[in-house]
Design a protein around this nucleic acid. Structure first.
Lengths: 340, 340
DNA sequence: CCTCGTCAGGCAAGCGCTTTCCACGGGACG
DNA sequence: CGTCCCGTGGAAAGCGCTTGCCTGACGAGG
């Protein structure tokens, strides 16, 4: 690998000058020299060693993101928003997939700290576990105390700023819609019990139930993984235990798709006999048959706002900023009036 | 930020000893010292500066990946395979999204080189453009000449090793299936004209046509973006220009879904009046109605093999290794016998 | 003609860490 | 009791780059 010294030697200048020319420093340099150096760079195919650069100018510029899984459409969309804003500000972003593993999350925060990132954005960490929250918080606080910025997407129990979607409201909208359609026997296909996403959405559903004079008993809620298979098996369990339900609220779209697949396999018509709702309005929601009634969250926007917060100057003891973003009902074909 | 020197001072040892203890070097160290140092690390919440470490041990370990877009399911799957193998070998991977922008691709290769990666994996760069291929090749060769490894997924015109899916075979399988079902008037909804992925798949379709005594005229091929909307608009154009086709081969699954959406909007039954095929067998393929007949590529496996190649010792003039992987037909509900 | 200001360019001190090489002390052995 | 050796720990030389500060030269002003 060619080094700066090689370039300098070849151009017959000092490394200092070469560095200044290559980085376009403001120091004035004769045109002849600049040409010589640039030519040397080209001939040697010189690429500066990023580690050396980053070490020398102790200047934090990139921002780190810890996310459940970038290839999950939900987080892909958030990430898109994050990236857009970062790029607009000329910042690089380093993305890490935690796959919701708390240990990995902690490790990655460490890794990002090691890489001297200017800010850390956490998305998709939704654990209720107090011990985890506590250690994460302390890490985040240490990080902030050294001038870093921490932003959390999706919950506000953490240290640092946050942008949180109104999951409760989303649940409420869905519940209200179903009750309005005359459904009183509603089952819920929920995500992992420990995620605030799950509990908040259920809380909204429950509020809708209350307001319509109903209840949402715990036995009508089955928990599973936030994916297609989780939805299918939860729906199977639910149907076996509670055969008289007329609507199933799945707590995200992939689960709803699993529910749809199971119902089709069992020959149950949707929305004829059972109405189904999703959550998040991912692109597939409109491509399945019947197209999913669901709730839209402005995911990309949330990412953008999180990055905007992350790029702000460090906190310095001011109270954490919390931005809440709304949810919006999307009516499609998977819901209809209750049968009887 | 606490530094190693801080830790050493606090523990009353030299930085050298602290470093050895923290990195678990093989040098023997008294237990008492080790405890003191570890305690200091804990108290100071010390995290080693990754740049300094990487600079000091000039030891390339992470591998870089340039990919079209990790959140695209196709590349997500490839990436999963890459990651798995990398993790098994304790290597970190740095992922960059090029969004198929040739300039970005070049830039990222540079960036990765700057970060001293041990290997570079290119996926989703499929441009036919000779100029681009040439500059990319020269960059890659320079990189390899400094001891790096380059692996390309999806095409073999590049320098370095390659793992390529048999797109031609996939196209052939689909074509053969359609002709076997009695379709003779076939339209193609193709991806960008400049991608080898597109041209190879078409070549397979054409071979099937020839073998069944038919032709696939250019006017029956409409090009569009490799996504849902690209599929929908290409299908619209195709249908308007060639109303008597009885089958549409879309060159990837998202496009096929767009085709399905358009046909539904126009009230055309699938596979009743028109059969539709996809390509890649992404998860959604089985969730749409009708479920897509498509071709499966072992994407994760391709990623894994690419990473395995990347982890191999440097080339040293041996001829580039090229691994080809097969394709497999998946029959579902979107195809049926031709009407007449 | 001397002094001073100015400008192009180089010197060298780090950035935070690793690692080679050396020093020191004590136990084993002759 | 002297030597040798081994087991521990430290000193210091970088890794490749940036940047504050200084120098030398040259033209301008007194």
């Amino acid at each position: 690998m060619a080094t700066l010294a090689d370039v300098a030697r070849r151009a017959g200048v000092s490394p200092a000058t070469a560095s200044r020319i290559i980085n376009g420093s403001s120091k004035p340099v004769t045109e002849a020299l600049r040409q010589r150096v640039l030519a040397a760079v080209e001939e040697l195919q010189y690429v500066p060693n990023a580690h050396a650069q980053l070490l020398a100018r102790s200047h934090r510029s990139t921002v780190g993101v810890v996310v459940h899984d970038v290839s999950d459409p939900y987080f892909a969309e958030i990430t898109r928003g994050l990236q857009r804003v970062a790029t607009e500000h000329g910042r690089l972003v380093m993305i890490c997939n935690s796959y919701r593993d708390p240990d990995k999350e902690l490790q990655y925060v460490e890794l990002l700290r090691a890489h001297q990132v200017a800010a850390i954005v956490l998305a998709g960490s939704g654990y209720h576990d107090d011990a985890f929250t506590e250690t994460m918080n302390s890490k985040l606080r240490v990080y902030e105390s050294t001038g870093g910025r921490a932003v959390v997407i999706g919950r506000h129990e953490h240290a640092g700023d946050a942008v949180v979607p109104d999951n409760e409201m989303g649940g409420y909208l869905l519940g209200a819609e179903l009750y309005a359609l005359g459904h009183t026997e509603i089952g819920v296909v929920a995500g992992p019990k420990l995620l605030t996403t799950t509990t908040d959405r259920i809380a909204g559903l429950r509020r809708a139930a209350r307001e319509h004079g109903h209840r949402l008993p715990a036995r009508r809620i089955v928990y599973g993984d936030f994916d297609r298979d989780g939805g299918a098996s939860a729906a199977a369990a639910l149907l076996d235990a509670e055969p008289d339900i007329t609507a199933i609220a799945a707590l995200n779209d992939p689960m709803a798709i699993g529910v749809l697949a199971l119902l089709r396999a069992r020959g149950i018509s949707v929305p004829g006999r059972i109405s189904v709702t999703g959550f998040d309005d991912m692109p597939v929601a409109r491509d399945v048959t019947p197209a999913l009634t669901t709730v839209r969250l402005p995911l990309a926007d949330m990412g953008a706002r999180a990055m905007t917060l992350a790029l702000q100057p460090p906190a310095d003891g001011r109270p954490p900023r919390i931005e809440e973003v709304g949810a919006e009902l999307v009516r499609r074909e998977s819901t209809g009036p209750a049968r009887d």
